[in-house]
């Protein structure tokens, strides 16, 4: 079965760009901001890029991702998020009808997807939703592994 047709797993993954994005074991809300997509979407959603943890190697895919410069992209590690908590957040009045998620495979990454937020959402609600995702939905942070530098 292609990944695109698979049911959503219980866990989502989000790369953390910097160690400073983690405070006392808690991930900062800035890690979960929603940004306009590179290409306009018909459904008018902004995106927060994630990987679905269909397999354990989805974590390694993020941890090994590199910038154009060759440096490790997510030097803060990977945040493990609970889909159940995201669904719980979606039942909140301020988030319902605005917050969603999807699979959207990209080249070289079948696990890729997005948490989605309608672009007409006010700044205040956007910040609150990012804060709740950071506080309630993150179950664990996997630190970056020692990976040999690219030749």
């Amino acid at each position: 079965m292609p990944f695109s047709d698979m049911p959503f797993p219980d866990v989502l993954l989000r790369g953390i760009s910097n160690e400073s994005d983690i405070f006392d074991g808690q991930v900062l809300a800035q890690v979960f901001q929603f940004n306009p997509p590179k290409e306009p979407r018909e459904d008018n959603h902004n995106e927060c890029s994630i990987n679905w943890k269909d397999e354990d190697c989805a974590i390694d895919l993020i941890l090994h991702e590199r910038k154009v410069s060759g440096q490790i992209k997510y030097s803060g590690g990977v945040a493990i998020l609970s889909k159940e908590e995201i669904d719980k957040l979606r039942t909140r009045r301020f988030a319902s009808v605005r917050l969603d998620y999807e699979r959207r495979a990209i080249e070289g990454n079948d696990f890729h997807g997005n948490i989605l937020l309608h672009k007409d959402t006010t700044e205040a609600v956007r910040r609150l939703i990012s804060g709740v995702i950071a506080y309630d939905c993150v179950m664990e942070v996997i630190p970056p592994r020692q990976i040999a530098p690219q030749p």
């Binding site: 400073s20 405070f23 900062l28 809300a29 901001q33 700044e123 205040a124 910040r127 804060g131």
Partner: peptide, 24 residues
Amino acid sequence: AVNILEDGATLIEWIFPDFRIGFS
């Protein structure tokens, strides 16, 4: 924790063990 977001806003977070406060 003060961070500049991609859309230019400044997010100030104050994180305690049992609660977190944010100013945007």
